[in-house]
Design a protein around this nucleic acid. Structure first.
Lengths: 128, 128
DNA sequence: CCCAAGTGCTTGCAAAAGCAAACGCTAGCG
DNA sequence: CGCTAGCGTTTGCTTTTGCAAGCACTTGGG
């Protein structure tokens, strides 16, 4: 326990980088990390320090919390919980838009056969 | 930037430990960290890795999130950032589904004319 | 008095992090 | 063809992490 999922974290970073259409060197520069080291991190050969992890998150423009969840820390909420609560609490959307988005999300979940009993968004964040 | 506040983090840990009435060695054992190293961390002489930080949090029975905030990670996120990263990192969806959802979300944002910035007080930060 | 048991701190040392400088590869362009 | 620019990866190397062993100090019994 407290063991960090290095390979999972690595592929997640690479996935995010691909989705952001960044090259490895671009992200490395944005995150102020050397590109060889980033390469190794993405392939799960190294487990980055907290500081490096944070810089990578900044370089990817994603929240550090997301990375920590992937790393195996902060295992509080399951993925779909994060999405539904995030949508439900987004005040830049109208209620109708939130409902629509949540329905689509639920439909995707059902489509995948995943466990997708998405409630409308409240949850009790209990840390354990 | 992205610089972690080592001494602040250290004194915070020691503070928490004192408050919990634990000796240094007790916490070291609970966190599965060597006591000399914990001593150095508390005095700000070392900056612990992400994994060690997490174990210390567990040993202290406090949320890792709290420690990360103290360490200078986990700054803040605006509302739309929460949603997009939550969707983007949801592994229960296919990539196509994620893209679709993100596009719909972006469309909603554009529709509202609030594409990129957070509104007045929409920090419905759900952690305690 | 003496010794066991507690506290935190210092000291080498093995292991891992993290980087600069290279490598091999592919795609364009003269 | 040769040259340049991009990609990700491999290779030594320095620096730092993190630990086992031991130090100095205080407290409490027998």
């Amino acid at each position: 326990m407290a063991k960090i999922n290095v390979s999972g974290l690595g592929s997640f970073i690479r996935d995010q980088r691909d989705q952001a259409q960044m090259s490895l060197r671009q992200l490395a520069k944005a995150a102020e990390v050397s590109n060889p080291y980033l390469s190794q991190v993405e392939r799960g050969l190294r487990k980055p320090s907290a500081e490096i992890l944070n810089r990578i998150a900044q370089g990817l423009r994603i929240s550090a919390e997301t990375l920590y969840v992937q790393a195996g820390f902060l295992s509080d909420r399951s993925g779909d919980e994060i999405v539904t609560t995030a949508i439900a609490s987004d005040r830049t959307l109208t209620e109708r838009q939130r409902t629509t988005l949540l329905q689509i999300y639920a439909a995707f979940q059902a489509e995948n056969g995943a466990s997708a009993q998405s409630n409308t968004g409240n949850h009790t964040q209990e840390n354990e």
